[in-house]
Design a protein around this nucleic acid. Sequence first.
DNA 1: AAATAAAATGTTATAATATTGCATTTGCAC
DNA 2: GTGCAAATGCAATATTATAACATTTTATTT
Lengths: 167, 167
Amino acid sequence: MQNLSSMHNITEHHNHQRCIDDAMTRAKALCHSRQVKFTRIREQVLACVWANHQPVGAYTILEELAKDSSRRPAPPTVYRALDFLLDNGLVHRIASLNAFIGCQDPSHQHQGHFLICRQCRNATELDTDIINTAINTAAKQHGFSVEVPCVEVVGCCAHCKENRDND
Amino acid sequence: MQNLSSMHNITEHHNHQRCIDDAMTRAKALCHSRQVKFTRIREQVLACVWANHQPVGAYTILEELAKDSSRRPAPPTVYRALDFLLDNGLVHRIASLNAFIGCQDPSHQHQGHFLICRQCRNATELDTDIINTAINTAAKQHGFSVEVPCVEVVGCCAHCKENRDND
DNA sequence: AAATAAAATGTTATAATATTGCATTTGCAC
DNA sequence: GTGCAAATGCAATATTATAACATTTTATTT
Ligand SMILES: [Zn+2]
Ligand SMILES: [Zn+2]
Ligand SMILES: [Zn+2]
Ligand SMILES: [Zn+2]
């Protein structure tokens, strides 16, 4: 996976319904092939996560589920669904935001790198080898074996920079 | 700052009292030069953070302060001190652990990169340009301006790997 | 089909981390 | 000393996450 997130610039207009549809289709297929259950709740939670490209908190998901359903689910319901989705690589957790975002390519396990716009809050997942290589090189100098690299870069995305200039 | 953390391997035996003394001396000097106050509480909190090389949680610090003093401080006391120390670059926050660690080189503002051993919990701060360069290169490809790069790598340190081999 | 086991969800309570708002104290300029 | 700003004390609460156990659903065995 080299250029998945550059297929389109999520900060510009794009057919987001397609993002959602693709993500749900992928998830369904992947769970089927792995013989794990893509239950209603898990599906609902994944849909919430894919509502947009901004990382979403567990309690926000809870609110959304409460709207859809007649009765309000409890936190464990959401966290269990999120754990399932995390285990299956369908979502990533953004530690610095205590929030979750849909994975662009769940077909292989990975910990993505994220560019998070301070202004529009959109997060873009990268998986350019260049960052992993740099981390591995630096770690190796210290005799350190990398298991889970976590890279969460806050800054300003191209779209927001443009808008700011236009003001 | 290129090789600060390679001065010694913190996972091996080292004169940690010297780490503490150096950190406190640096902090005192730095606050004096910046004309900000290194109050008793801030000093106590920084000392707690430097008790070892493992990131420490705010409520653990709270416990330590409670031991020292007759009366138990409230959370805001600790968080305010931590905010001060963060603002002045004397400590870093490890988002993935909700914990804090002393900065190896507070003289210039930076967001360090951390190698966190899953076994011994020690965290080593890097600031090798190689990682920053990689992040900037990847970000640039997306027109993204980096403001705060957050790199927290979990894995196994050299010392723990050695010990494991010896078992 | 009935019995059994395993997985998923419901429910209540609570833990862990962090912040808000306001009162009080401290240190310093005047 | 008076006045002001910064720092701290303090109570309450917000936010994120998990533990423990009951119930329901789904799959497997008989
Ligand atoms: Zn989209
Ligand atoms: Zn991903
Ligand atoms: Zn040390
Ligand atoms: Zn540092």
